Amino acid sequence: MTPGRRAAAVLLAVTAMLGLASCAPEPGTAPADPSAPTAGASAPPADPNAEPTCETILSESLVAEFKGYGLEAIEEPFSFGDPATTSIEGGVMCTWGAPDVATDHGVQIFGWAPLDAAGAEKWQAFLTEQGWTRSDEGGLAVYTEPFAPVPEDAMAYAFGDGFVKVAAPKQNLAVITWP
């Protein structure tokens, strides 16, 4: 196994464990307060006008782990497909992977953007028209791509109060910590 593929496999395993671990309460504990930050969540930015970046929408420890495996983030505008026509101002979409490995295996996508109610309505209608499947999960409207070859690897958008986030695979929505 090449070093790039090994790093990608480790990354996939780590993010899957983080995603699953953040969903399950400790045995014998009360259900978590949904308004409380998740374990490993980063603090809100000191500047309330700060914009999200690939390194601030995830916890510092996860970013350090990715970098430790030689992974880098490609930062692009947050979009619902073609950035030229579906971008959200003030948002970011990040593709983490090994730059020296030409593959889409093991690549992780994370993104966050501010979104008002009218924007949420517009983009949820857009995803519905494209055949994405909606579910309500933990107070979020989650849209999952219907055409993923492996359902566990599906990309998903989650709409909350004043924001939208994206992750691929879907379980990684849980590790996006931007306020």
Score class of each variant (00 low, 15 high):
S22R: 15
E129F: 06
F126S: 08
V142F: 05
D82P: 06
V101P: 00
P37N: 06
Y157N: 13
F80N: 10
E137V: 15
T85V: 08
P45G: 03
G106S: 12
A98T: 13
A21I: 01
A36K: 04
F78N: 14
P31G: 10
G139M: 11
P149K: 04
A117R: 13
D104P: 00
W123Q: 09
V92A: 06
M17W: 14
G19E: 11
P31N: 05
S87R: 15
G160V: 12
T128E: 15
F147Y: 10
P34C: 10
C54K: 01
G81E: 11
L71P: 01
T95E: 11
L18D: 15
L58D: 03
V142D: 04
T103F: 08
S42L: 00
W123S: 08
E121V: 05
A118E: 15
E75R: 02
C23N: 12
D136F: 06
A102R: 10
S87K: 14
S61Y: 08
A64P: 00
Y69H: 05
F66Y: 08
E26A: 15
E76W: 00
G97F: 08
P83D: 04
M93H: 14
M93A: 14
E137S: 06
P151A: 07
A117L: 13
V142S: 04
F78T: 08
G131T: 12
P151W: 03
A64W: 02
P77I: 07
T56S: 13
S22M: 12
M155V: 11
F78A: 14
G68V: 01
P44F: 03
N49A: 15
V92R: 06
N49W: 03
D153T: 07
E129K: 15
F126N: 09
N49P: 00
V63M: 02
G28R: 10
T133G: 01
R134E: 14
W123K: 09
F110L: 14
T86I: 07
G111D: 12
I74Y: 01
D153P: 00
H105Q: 15
T53Q: 00
L140E: 15
A41G: 08
K122C: 09
A158V: 11
M155S: 13
Y69T: 00
P146C: 00
A84N: 05
D47Y: 03
V63K: 02
I57Q: 06
F66K: 02
A21K: 09
E89S: 12
F159K: 10
A24T: 12
C23W: 14
